[in-house]
Design a protein around this nucleic acid. Structure first.
Lengths: 119, 119
DNA sequence: CATCTACTTTGACAGATATCGAATCAACTT
DNA sequence: AAGTTGATTCGATATCTGTCAAAGTAGATG
């Protein structure tokens, strides 16, 4: 069976939240993504993965960078995976993670402020 | 006394998190901001405030838009205020909130993906 | 001053979340 | 097949967070 969870449909959230009020439904789905970013370890994990050479990082590289246990890292990676911020692939013994630029860009757009907003 | 809490120093977080690994300290402070965005009601509040005519909204306008009590709205507004996402000002009987574009832009930049990243 | 409206703070509580140790799974190596 | 290393899942627990009712504050107005 595939490992790919439905990473929640954010497809209809392309408008900056400053432009028009979010629907309750959009807010619900966006909040899941921002909540995933709302943990220091997950932010660092995402940053480490995204900035890693080759665009991907092995879990073994990530675990050593933190003072928490391996299960905790695994838990945080799962949260990032389920929100579509990263994707994982097993190659032989190791599991590699890479960032999903589309999701990051989408969230970045939602927070962006069009010039002349709020006038 | 002033109502202005120190809205946490994010000044040194101008680089996309895909560009280089976040420091533990940067991640800690950014996480507070993203956590503030990680609630559907707060996202909608922020969106309502930012997109409101004149760039500001009275609390009375906001409270009616949700199914939760006034204290709960007040709590969420406080979280947004303390992270520097909004600012408030009392004029006569009413308290007006407006979005802080600089904070939004900063967070947007952190999530943005420079072209050619991860190669 | 008393009172009304707008908003915030306090205190309490139920549900969510981060964390760990132990157990499990997956792939490689003798 | 047995053992080793890498990674995830499970179960338990301490802490955090969202929520409300009740009480408190701020300003306007009678």
């Amino acid at each position: 069976m595939s490992k790919q969870r439905t990473p929640l449909p954010l497809a209809d959230c392309h408008t900056p939240l400053t432009a028009e009020p979010l629907s309750a439904d959009q807010a619900e789905r966006l909040a899941v993504s921002f909540k995933a970013l709302g943990d220091p370890i997950r932010l660092r994990l995402l940053s480490l993965i995204a900035s890693h050479q080759g665009g991907e990082a092995c879990v073994c590289d990530l675990t050593d960078a933190f003072d928490v246990s391996a299960p905790t890292i695994s838990h945080h990676l799962k949260v990032l995976r389920e929100t579509g911020l990263v994707a994982s692939e097993r190659r032989a013994t190791w599991v590699y993670y890479r960032a999903e630029p589309a999701t990051l860009e989408l969230l970045s757009t939602v927070l962006s402020v069009p010039q002349g907003a709020g006038e």
